[in-house]
Nucleic acid binder design. Structure first.
Length: 149
DNA sequence: GCCAACGTTGGC
DNA sequence: GCCAACGTTGGC
């Protein structure tokens, strides 16, 4: 069972939002590498919910993939911030997955703590300049992060 | 708000 | 195919 990490700006969608709603759609990914990882996800896969561009960037909890990748509807909605004029119903290059709430950490596992852990040195998240918003997490990295709770 | 780093676009 | 310009990401 693969593990993943996905970034979201908590102002847009946070672990608290997912907890409250129980489930949601992970859409708006507009980067091909990240999209390709979305397409590799299977129902039941767990992911780390990362808060970016906020006061305390870090891993805020865990979610589960409840529906594997399908064409991202937001690309076709002109009123969406994620609208893509080059996408069409028959040619939509973007993917979304559905997710469900699993766990909200008592404290956000802040980025500096993740960077300081040598077990996470190879995680794309902590590498300088990395902007990837969806990435795989190795089982050892997954365990290392959970040990920081 | 700043800015480094990255991905994309488009001229050539 | 190269690469400069541009827009975006995201930490600080």
């Amino acid at each position: 069972m693969p593990f993943w990490l996905m970034k979201s700006e908590p102002d847009e969608f946070s672990i608290a939002d997912l907890q409250q709603r129980g489930s949601g759609r992970w859409d708006g990914v507009r980067n091909y590498q990240a999209r390709n990882y979305l397409r590799q996800m299977a129902e039941g896969d767990l992911f780390l919910f990362y808060h970016s561009s906020c006061a305390t960037p870090g891993v805020a909890g865990i979610g589960r993939i409840s529906r594997s990748a399908y064409p991202d509807p937001s690309a076709l909605q002109p009123d969406s911030a994620y609208f893509d004029g080059k996408a069409s119903a028959t040619g939509n290059p973007w993917s979304a997955v559905d997710v469900e709430f699993v766990e909200r950490f008592e404290h956000v596992l802040a980025l500096p703590a993740l960077k300081a852990d040598p077990r996470l040195a190879d995680l794309a998240l902590v590498k300088k300049g990395s902007r990837l918003s969806v990435m795989p997490v190795e089982p050892e990295q997954w365990q290392a992060i959970l040990s920081l709770r």
